[in-house]
Design a protein around this nucleic acid. Structure first.
Lengths: 343, 343
DNA sequence: TTCTCTACTGTGAACGCTCACAGAAGCGGC
DNA sequence: GCCGCTTCTGTGAGCGTTCACAGTAGAGAA
């Protein structure tokens, strides 16, 4: 009964083959596979050896069919994908989540819900139980998908604090407000007093929180607030450029700018350069993110580093806990001021 | 028999429920689900209605268990992940593949094989039949993983032409050589004659092919070859900078450079600027990729656009064909010259 | 009428696993 | 001896689907 090796794939060994090979029953093999409780050392060893000899790998479909779990997790990206897909942080996050899940032998399923059609398909897919939980990456949080999935009882962890949701949603986020405070304190320590800010979109938690941190520190320091020093941006390079121009027009005496993202900060640098302002001599510029854009800029950007590697591992940790039955949780992680040439 | 809606997930309807609801047998429902052949219009309609009423979604695990297919595909990234994860093209590719697969209702599983450990785990996972096929993104192609998977009979499509593989591997690639030819012809048409080149790594197909295109056009045009005009780079910004410096030292009379990637071209611009050469007046600079770096550069880069969206959709098409039993195939897609300010 | 062919439908078996349960074996205490 | 308890093992059932097969009904041909 020889079988050709080329072309077709050979039928893989089953738990039954392993049991026969090890001289035990299916049940015993299954117990070894799932933690090894109530198995004699001799049996466990025989099974391990048989698994190695036969090259057995568990059939996840058969397992899932009976357990009801899929042992897989969705990585869901909603809404304006362009913004994310150009964001290098997205890559770090994706990689971190994939690796953290791999350590638990859980595959990550990529899901994009840009259009309404996709959103419906994916919601259906998820609520049908094809994944055990969802890692949600959404920009304008307050996402309807999150609400819907939570209502269906799907374990869910968002990246960044969701705002305006009624149901309780787990999330992991960097401490945006504290990062902003650090940056503005740094600018104050350099002797700057007319500090402008280009915020992120104010329907995002990052936009709101970073601005709040800015206001807090200035008010603590007794610097009078000046709304002309505050403009809002959209996290794009062009938005940063436009924001800086507006600031220069409204508040020519500005001696520093806190920009809510590195990409926007690049635009700010361009605009300042064009206006003949030297950085950092005339105007100090602080970014946020510590993205590759920060070191690509000239001068290199002082910025706030978000702990993306920890964010991803925490997201996975919280999600798995929730799948295991624990309650939703929020995790806020500290940021770090990275000093470079622009301040 | 009411059931709490909050908290636990309700047990989903099965094909049996649908059959009962529609007044037909499981077999008929299954036939409707899988193409609807040999089903009367009346029955098909009744089943469709029942599916809608019950909110039935097929249990993929049960299906996979019996069909032996997983109806899922792996997106495998091997080796130096850093290079890829910083490459915006990676994002476009990932998104394109995800969407193209979604159209066939096939989930994409993210797989990273950076370390040897991961490589082993993933090879095992794949050959165990947990995915039906693999989309391979590998830098230094000639990848051992590709060979191993092909040997195991796993359908596989590589992004970019694999080199030095014994087994026959499908691939989809942009026409690197032709793109290079277009760029060099463009530089010649501008009257440039001392045209330098910063190549990609010469163990990658892109590195080899783009250099070949350069040589071809110059020899066709009767321009004498000068090895001092050729330096090799590594696709990084710093590598581009170093390459340009070497070119300026070896061939000061150079009036154009063809750079094998936009990121390197940014470095080239920096070096030229430092050396006091004006772009494009003194030295014209052509890039490759049309990445965001191309428009971020100043002056904006003339470059070669690779059709990433088509590359991803073709990869999926070829892979699905191969899963369907067709032979491995190679697809080469045309590139496009994008003229901007640097030439 | 009868036979054949096509279009359609229902049924049991099987996919590979886990789970619940029953039972065996060993041990100590009465 | 019997009992209970713990540790370990094997067995049958069943998860939700597809597939092969058997069977029915109706149309058309002989």
């Amino acid at each position: 009964m020889t079988m050709s090796n080329t072309g077709g794939r050979r039928k893989p060994p089953t738990i039954h083959d392993v049991a026969r090979e090890a001289g035990v029953s299916r049940g015993t093999v299954s117990r070894v596979l799932n933690g090894g409780h109530y198995v004699s050392p001799a049996a466990a060893q025989a099974v391990d050896a048989a698994i190695r000899r036969t090259g057995y790998v568990v059939n996840r479909h058969a397992r899932s069919l009976i357990t009801g779990r899929s042992d897989s997790v969705g990585f869901l990206l909603t809404e304006p994908q362009e913004r994310f897909f150009e964001d290098p942080n997205f890559n770090v996050l994706l990689r971190g989540c994939t690796q953290a899940l791999a350590a638990h032998d859980i595959p990550l399923l990529m899901m994009l819900a840009g259009t309404d059609d996709e959103r419906r398909r994916i919601t259906r897919y998820i609520t049908a139980g094809h994944v055990d939980g969802v890692l949600l990456v959404s920009s304008h949080s307050g996402d309807p998908v999150a609400e819907e999935l939570r209502a269906a009882g799907v374990p869910l962890v968002a990246c960044g604090k969701p705002i305006g949701l009624r149901s309780k949603v787990s999330y992991v986020a960097a401490d945006d407000r504290d990062g902003a405070r650090d940056m503005v304190r740094h600018l104050l320590a350099l002797g700057r007093r007319r500090i402008g800010v280009v915020t992120g979109p104010l329907d995002t938690p990052g936009g709101v929180e970073r601005l709040a941190g800015y206001r807090e520190v200035l008010s603590e320091a007794g610097v009078e607030a000046d709304e002309r020093l505050i403009v809002s941006g959209d996290y794009t390079r062009a938005g940063g450029e436009a924001g800086a121009e507006r600031l220069l027009a409204q508040a020519p005496g500005m001696d520093a700018v806190f920009v809510a993202s590195d990409l926007m900060a690049q635009g700010v640098l361009t605009a300042l350069h064009r206006a003949g302002r030297r950085v950092p001599e005339d105007v100090a510029v602080g970014g946020f993110d510590d993205s590759p854009a920060a070191v690509a800029a000239s001068p290199e950007l002082t910025t706030i580093r978000q702990p993306w590697d920890r964010i991803s591992s925490e997201m996975v940790r919280v999600l798995l806990a929730q799948i295991g039955g624990e309650d939703p949780a929020a995790v806020i992680l500290p940021t770090e001021l990275v000093k470079r040439a622009s301040t």
